[in-house]
Design a protein around this nucleic acid. Structure first.
Lengths: 173, 173
DNA sequence: CCATAAACGTTTGTCTCACCAACGAAATGT
DNA sequence: ACATTTCGTTGGTGAGACAAACGTTTATGG
């Protein structure tokens, strides 16, 4: 996962700063967001790789811990992983004994995925690991600033999530 | 650029460690960053697509405007685009008449890429377009909050950029 | 009841994107 | 002069997001 470079790599030496617009080009929020997210992704990826895990492993384990055993289809909806790709994730988790895949007797189309005790331990490890990564990522920020950042991001996400709802789910649909 | 206004009054959700970890899983900064950046990327991508452009088109045009004509290799270093991929970008920009590719008489290995008047106009269009996208992206935030966000992100990026320098470039290298 | 439709897990394929390898052409260093 | 390096270009790799289609099983509706 250490393959994200970025579209930046420039230094801030904009000697031609005659305009606010010119200075703003480098500091476009969308750009800063992209770069920062890339950095975060790199750190997370490396951290998880060191624990023989990936992003989706963690997502599945968390989903299972939060809402209990579920079919792959349900898990796919809850985590956002495409059901095609989820197969491999479950395979890998099962290989490591973090999860069990059993046919559902009540509906023989489904597989019931259950987290194991070992899986819970693993998830706990990853929790700590990821907390450490957040700390590393946000190192230059004070606790108050970190809260600010997450709050701002959450508000942006919320805004667009609701906007998306109005478009498709519709106000009267 | 004063980096911090007073960071005091963010809404403190809680200070409890263990519960915050559980509740924080959903709110992991790295996750929020990823989602927000994805949203930003989508908006930017759609916006640019509507103007028959892509991210790297803009990056190249900006680089050319800022530092004048350059070879593809130089352009590659300045934008972070791999020189392999840059070929296609220049092709597309040249097709649209936004850029001109001419052999360098002084060094016949090089191509000198020059932005055209049309390219400048195009870049200006994209500037406005992207400004609009930023506005759309940050819609729920006040101007002060937007500045806060970009400042926080810039500080994070700066921190990690310098950390990377120490690792490879080295203080004494 | 039975036929049709839908949901499930899986395999396979497509598309994009960052990245690398190697090539011929041309310049540079020794 | 020769080896080394740089440049533009082509082609390919590997990962990730997504879609299509298939066999199996369950639900639906005449």
């Amino acid at each position: 996962m250490s393959k994200k470079a970025d579209t930046g790599a420039g230094d801030m030496t904009d000697g031609s700063g005659d305009r606010a617009a010119a200075a703003g080009l480098r500091g476009l929020p969308s750009r800063l967001l992209g770069l920062t997210a890339a950095q975060a992704d790199r750190l997370v990826g490396e951290g998880l790789a060191g624990a023989d895990a990936r992003k989706w492993h963690y997502a599945v384990l968390v989903a299972l811990q939060e809402s209990g055993p579920a079919s792959q289809a349900t898990l796919s909806r809850r985590t956002g992983i495409y059901r095609s790709d989820l197969v491999a994730v479950i395979n890998e988790l099962a290989e490591r004994g973090h999860v069990e895949r059993a046919p559902d007797p009540a509906d023989r189309r489904r597989n019931v995925i259950t987290i194991t005790t070992q899986g819970r331990r693993h998830a706990q490890r990853l929790d700590k690991l990821l907390a450490g990564v957040q700390d590393q990522l946000l190192a230059p920020l004070s606790p108050a600033e970190r809260t600010q950042l997450t709050s701002l991001l959450a508000r942006i996400l919320d805004h667009h999530a609701q906007a998306a709802r109005r478009a498709s789910g519709g106000p009267s649909a």
